[in-house]
Design a binder for these strands. Sequence first.
DNA 1: GCAATGACGCTCT
DNA 2: CAGAGCGCCATTG
Length: 122
Amino acid sequence: MPVRGARKGHRGTGSHEMTFQRIYSTVRRIPLGRVATYGQIAKVAGFPGRARQVGYALAALPNGSTVPWHRVINAQGRLSLERTVAGGGVVQRQRLEREGVVFEGSRVSLQRFGWKTRGRRA
DNA sequence: GCAATGACGCTCT
DNA sequence: CAGAGCGCCATTG
């Protein structure tokens, strides 16, 4: 059960929606051919330590979104999709390789392809 | 409101 | 390098 429609209808609060937008705009800043970790996205977006929420936000992304979600991988340089969803990592890997990201086995070198953020946000 | 469930990260074994 | 434990937090039943 992959987050059954986590976006459902609008809520009166809207605060979490703001969080999602914050995360999405940060993911959009990842340069082509580079990758960022969930924790890094959370940190840059202004929510250090909330890597899980980043994954949650990405899981809520509708199919065909313009957000480059494939450039977000876990801190181990591996594709989290491959761990949870069977076959899901294949698409992500192909997208990354098409952008020039090189896989070493089933892992990406964050040392070389990691996104240098500089600590700026939004 | 509580218990269970995650596209996670870090530390210890 | 792989696995287990613990922390964090939004969403769901």
